[in-house]
Design a protein around this nucleic acid. Structure first.
Lengths: 257, 257
DNA sequence: GTCTATATGTGGATAGAC
DNA sequence: GTCTATCCACATATAGAC
């Protein structure tokens, strides 16, 4: 152990730099040469420490997902223990699942917004080995939460729950990816949309907190939406002008001072 | 015009194959050699017809987005004319925006699910030139729909609307990307989740229709969710056990026969 | 418009000295 | 563990004959 010299520094510097560059330019768009130059280590170091570029990517994710998986399971265990057999509320489950993820963005030690963005962008990467790897890392946790949602919504068809879990994952992963066309079109960052006091460049910690604050109500609203078919998905002829839509209007308006 | 020989065939074959391969392996992961080999045209043909690989990608998108942009504007124009100055309903706007997009998946001539998947995957591509190009293509339409939502929800803060538009774009783009970890984890395609009668492999047309049917209620539910802050985003202490959550439960249950 | 041949660069990976 | 030097496959792009 004591004869490892700067070994630990080298490994971690490579991981940190790779995380940053994979996030900014993608896996295929980032060469080992750029990584090692930026990290100021030797080119051969990557293959010595990790074996290959693919293995490097896996390690970049593993060191972050280890915490995320553990914490998500812990949060769900805590909820289920606390409920003592009673079904959980959907909002609690979403908070445990998505809230835990978004906490990464608030803590540099867990990866911060850099890793969140990387995760969001990588979830739609077409590379085969990436998809199978991520699926494997996610499998256990996803299964647990899926079952929890089934129990929480016993009267909703399971297929419908899976669809909506799918949509929620999408809204979240796109949001944390931070590549939205809206941002480029409107020429503003998500941080600018946070509104309120903080002027100038918002730090990532605050951005993550606000993202969570905005995203969670949206996800809950989507999860609890009426099932398709009941109003034919889009009510072209609502029962009365003040029935189908206004329910929402009321929600939104009553919070405007 | 008549002296162009097989020119048209070559150009279109390259575009069709590039669309398919970019979807399956990404921009960086697809070489011009593979494209020209698959399309059974000469390697130099790409540079002759399009100028460069980047220009090829742009053309792949342009030929599909031309229809999408035109149709989205037309749909919004029609809604606004029909309303005669009155504000539109959010559901109408979403139907015009997302429904038009999803129609692509039902029509091979418009690109089909291949292009939809490509679009969803490319929206989170980290490459600089792709993001700026797509933003430019989307700019006009996004701006129009944003304004329409502002008018439709005059009492909702504009920043909040932009956030939710952002989330809706995410849910949709992730859904059409078809790279969800859920699918790999559960080992099933979205088509399997459609349930109902059709056994075996579902054709893309039916998949697109069902996706639309499931996605639209989710998006509406998210858009119309209570504003953050009103229940502190996650009600840890709801007023009564049968108040905050059950409203949803009722929605979902009353549709279960 | 199409093709062959090639220019020119960069990628990941490794062998072997230190 | 670190470094230099190098192998070799493959990338985009183009020049020039047909």
């Amino acid at each position: 152990m004591s004869d490892q010299k700067t070994n630990h520094d080298t490994r971690d510097r490579i991981l940190d730099v790779a995380e940053q560059l994979f996030m900014a330019h993608g896996y295929e768009g980032t060469s080992l040469r750029v990584i090692t130059n930026t990290a100021e280590v030797n080119l051969a170091a990557v293959n010595y420490h990790f074996g290959s570029k693919e293995a490097l990517l896996r390690e970049v994710f593993r060191r972050r997902l280890a915490w995320l998986n553990r914490e998500r399971l812990r949060a769900l265990d805590a909820l289920e223990s606390g409920a003592g057999g009673a079904p959980l509320k959907p909002s609690q489950i979403l908070e445990a699942f998505f809230g835990t993820l978004l906490r990464i963005g608030e803590d540099e030690a867990l990866g911060g917004m850099t890793f969140l963005r990387l995760l969001g962008r990588t979830l739609t990467d077409p590379a085969e080995f990436i998809r199978t790897f991520l699926a494997g890392e996610y499998a256990e946790v996803i299964e647990r939460y899926k079952q929890a949602l089934f129990s929480a919504l016993p009267d909703v068809p399971k297929a419908e729950i899976v669809w909506r879990l799918h949509f929620m994952l999408g809204a979240m992963s796109y949001a944390i990816a931070g590549t939205d066309v809206l941002q480029v079109v409107t020429g503003c960052e998500l941080s600018d949309l946070a509104g309120e006091e903080t002027a100038g460049a918002i730090d990532d910690t605050a951005l993550a907190r606000r993202l969570s604050q905005r995203l969670m109500p949206f996800l809950l609203g989507g999860l609890r939406a009426p099932l398709p078919g009941c109003l034919d998905s889009v009510p072209h002829v609502p029962p009365s002008e003040g029935d189908a839509e206004p329910q929402t209007q009321r929600h939104l308006q009553e919070k405007q001072p």
